[in-house]
Amino acid sequence: MTNQEAKFILGVYRPSGADAGNATFGVALEHAKTDPALGAWFARDQAHAAAITAKLREIAPPAGLREAILAGGRLSAVPEQNRRSRLPAWLALAASVAVLATIGIKLWPNRAAAEEQRLALFAIDDAAHGRHGGHGTAAGALQSMLSLASTRLGGDLPVDFAALQSTGCRTLRVEGHDMIEVCFVRDGSEYHLYVVQRSDFPELPAKDGPIFTDREGMTVASWSDNQRHYIVASGKGRSALEHLL
C-alpha cells in the first residue's frame, strides 16, 4: 500500500474511534504507525476533523424545534385502528377477505376520512407553530383574492398549483407530495390556506363539503373540488371559519 492509498482510506476514519473495529482500516493504520510522514499527516488530519466536529457540536438547534417535532409526531401518527394488524399474515389475509366480503366498498369512506384527517392534522400542526409565508407573484394574487370579503371558500378556487410553486410560494412536503400554503388576512384575522392536488392523494373523498377539525387551539375546515383538496386553518375558532365559507 502506498502512502497515497493509505491517505485515501484513512481520510474517512472518524477521530472518535468509532471505526476502530472496522477491518477496512487495519492495514492503513499499521502503515501510519511505521511511516513517520504518513503518521504525522494522519495525526494532523484527525486533529483537523476533531476540531471541525467540536465546532459543529456547538451549534444548537433553534429553541422550540424539539417540541414542534414531538407535537407534529403525535398529531401525524397514524391512528391505532388504522394500523396494519399484528396477526400472522395468513390469518390477517383471511380476516381481510372476510371483512371485505362482508362490508364491501364501505371500507373506502373510512380510508378516505383517515386521509382527510391526516392532512387536516398536518395543517393544524404547521399553522399552530407559525411556520408561514406564501411568497411570489401568484401567491400574492391569491392572497389578495382570499382577503376580499366577497370571496367564499368551501368550493372551487382559482388555484394554479404549478404557477404558485414555480413563483416561490411556500411548499411543504406531505407523505412525499407537495402542499402549498398561503397566508391571508380577512377582517383583521390571519388564516392559512393549504392546497394539495387530489391526484397525489387518491384516497381522499370525492368532492365534498367542509369538514371541521379542532386541535391545539386551531380549527381547520377541509373540502375538495375535482382537482384539489383545500384546508383553511385559523386560531379564531370555528365560527370565524364558518364566516369564510
Binding site: G72, R118, L172, E175
Partner: peptide
C-alpha cells in the same frame, strides 16, 4: 428546521 420536522413527520407516518 422544516427539513428536520418533515423527516420526523415521515417517520411518524411511515
Amino acid at each position: 428546521g422544516d427539513l428536520v420536522q418533515q423527516t420526523f413527520f415521515i417517520w411518524a407516518t411511515k
